[in-house]
Simulated assay, not measured.
Amino acid sequence: MIPVIDCSVRYFEKSKYRALQIRNKWPTHAGQSFIDCLTEEMNRNNVRSAVLVSEIDGDFYQHGELLAITEDNSEKFIAAPLINPNRKNEKNNLQRYIEYGIRAVKLSELGHHSNPLQPVKLNSITSFALWEIFSKYALTVFVRPTVYDSNLLAYLAAAFPEVNVIIESSMVSISPRQATVDEWGRPRLNLPLPTMDRYTLWGLSNFPNVSVVLASQYSFSRCDWPYVDLIDWHGLENFIALFGAERLMWGSDFPFTCINPGYQKCLQTFDGLDHDISPNDLQFVFSRTAEKLLLQKPYAVT
């Protein structure tokens, strides 16, 4: 059995997670925290490590609980705090994470450049100053492009080849106006598929520093698990043909998937969508790519 690394766990602060539990009727056991519930699922399904991708739009101190969890369990959990380019003094905030030893972050948005009708000037992109720091320390950066800013990612990936860019949610871009929540409390994208910017995003396969987390199929598929409507254009074979298995990772989107389809079925999604994937390719998707990008020794801060 392949030891698995889950590259898409959605981390909420304690009060927010508890509110989501109550509203969405997610499983809860007396005395069990978010991490307790996640660890139980990981142990049950041979998942050895998980990336806790922050959903907390706050500063260094508001990520204190997340940082403490990953410090106490550094072999099992990896923190990716949220960085917001629109927040004042966010460069100082990012520097604190780096000094703490963080090697992966989530960028809340790519931003925008000053005039979308003119050629893109890198230093006019609102997140540009943060990318300079990402590059200096060779950070890994999780991003979720929107239909409005996805064209900027190619410019940034090309300008900062030292940055490992990981596109979340199977590279399906967000359209905020068409995002809702379904009966299970999961994000739902009511988009025509494939999305209109798919060729822009698929073109990112030309950049060796861009990888993809295969997750969130529930949010854009029109079918229940195993999401058979995605086979023709969004199956694993398609991604391997574009990126190669060595630039692909798997993610559960826990806790959104804790009831429907359940953690184990998330692991089995590719069984329903693809039947001819080699064991070597699956090893990359389920662990080896993440080991290379996320489990290397931390850089030395100078």
Rank of each mutant, 00 (worst) to 15 (best):
Q32P: 03
I167P: 01
N46A: 07
V4R: 13
Y137F: 10
V147H: 11
N89S: 14
P161I: 03
T140H: 09
T39D: 09
L295W: 07
K106L: 10
T269P: 03
F207W: 12
T195K: 09
I174S: 07
D232G: 12
Q95T: 10
E183H: 12
A157V: 02
N151M: 14
I2F: 14
V4N: 01
A68W: 13
V172P: 01
Q268R: 14
L204Q: 02
S216C: 05
S127K: 06
L82M: 10
F256G: 00
K265Q: 06
R48T: 12
I2S: 07
F60Q: 04
T28Q: 13
E65W: 08
P116D: 15
L107R: 05
N190T: 08
N164C: 04
H113R: 14
N151K: 14
V147S: 13
N43M: 14
K14F: 12
W26E: 05
E13N: 07
L156A: 01
G31E: 02
F12I: 02
T126P: 02
Y61Q: 10
Y11Q: 08
W184M: 13
L152Q: 00
S211R: 03
C223Y: 11
L294H: 04
W202E: 10
K91F: 08
P145A: 02
N238K: 13
V51C: 12
A159F: 08
P27H: 07
D6W: 07
P226A: 14
V120F: 11
I231D: 08
E246S: 12
Q283N: 14
L273H: 03
Q264I: 00
L153P: 00
G185R: 06
G235I: 03
S278F: 10
K14I: 06
S135Q: 09
N24L: 05
S108L: 15
Q21W: 10
